[in-house]
Design a protein around this nucleic acid. Structure first.
Lengths: 191, 191
DNA sequence: ATGAGAGCAGACAGACCTGTCTGTTCGGAA
DNA sequence: TTCCGAACAGACAGGTCTGTCTGCTCTCAT
């Protein structure tokens, strides 16, 4: 018998509501009471599925990871180069949407200073996955130094997310496209 | 008579303590009680100088702005190009320090989702100042499209701060130096 | 010397937050 | 039919947070 099935409808409602509220308003600003009220779930039910609030935050980060992985998976592209361009172009699109509130991982990390905290480790897992994805695509695209170039793309990724949140959200998209093109085609990474 | 002189020793102690704690642990995680205890100040004295906690947070952001402006002012450089390189190199240095916890402006913005909030506006003021600084230096350096190139440098700035906080803090420095050199020397910004 | 202002100490109210507990309802499996 | 687990409703405890208020002390300028 699946004691704590992660497929439980009540659990899903809680996680969906938490995802929406945490992203829109921040983790520490949203209390358990509000989440269970908007999810239509009893408090006991919440604590039946999650041992504490931090566990819910960790689940929120992992859920975001799954969603972003799925979104990138769905992007079709002819080759690694096109895939990389598609990833950054999609990020620019999403960043310009009205409800964009920055990168959920960067935002959550700002509220969890301790690098050893489970939430931070879940964030680290996403970043590690994304970095590896960049490296693999760059390797396939014939980049001479995929590790270093992936670091550079990571920089652009984070800068794009922050800029869309804090500055004019439409400005970075073409700038990023140029930059990624230059990184892919440009001088062979030597100093 | 200077009713609420900003030079008051008690006020300075509060602001210094708040700066240290807010940066190290986040804004919402640090309570007023702890700040006044560590600053050695009575609660009434705190509320004599700041109408509410949010005002202290705004003062913290403005204090960070002043400090960063002073730090950049102190950097000596032969010309605009060298100044730009010096700014980013210094950021890479600071990002590798043990107590580095990310960009205080990005971190604070993550805790204040509402763009109309005074704290967000204080953050916007810093970013606006920094962006203008980049534009002016790029103009002096003869960049053909300083506005667009400044956007790109802004991206690198934010990416550097995030990377030093969340990933290996020593990795980005050389990558950023290469990137900035390429941005300054590289293809004349055309598509 | 006296009075104003700056600061200290700490109690207090009221709200909110997390997490626990009691009791009830309901559906499905044995 | 009966019984168990999942979920609901909501009270409750214990802690924390912000902001107010009362008194007291000290310094300094008038």
């Amino acid at each position: 018998m699946p004691a704590n099935s992660p497929k439980s409808p009540a659990r899903s409602r809680v996680l969906d509501t938490a995802t929406r509220l945490f992203y829109a308003e921040g983790v520490h600003s949203v209390g358990i009471d509000r989440i269970i009220a908007e999810a239509g779930v009893a408090k006991a039910t919440f604590y039946h599925h999650f041992p504490a609030k931090d566990a819910l935050v960790k689940a929120y980060i992992e859920e975001q990871t799954r969603q972003q992985q799925a979104a990138i998976d769905e992007l079709t592209a002819d080759g690694p180069r096109e895939k990389l361009l598609a990833v950054f172009d999609r990020m620019g699109q999403i960043g310009a949407l009205a409800d964009f509130r920055g990168c959920p991982f960067i935002n959550a990390a700002a509220e969890y200073p301790d690098p050893a905290h489970p939430v931070r480790q879940a964030i680290e897992e996403y970043r590690s996955w994304f970095r590896t994805l960049m490296r693999d695509l760059l390797t396939d695209a014939g980049d001479p130094d995929p590790v270093r170039t992936a670091d550079l793309l990571m920089l652009i990724r984070d800068g794009l997310a922050v800029a869309c949140d804090l500055d004019d959200p439409t400005a970075p998209r073409p700038v990023v496209r140029d930059a990624v093109l230059r990184v892919l085609d440009g001088a062979p990474a030597g100093v």
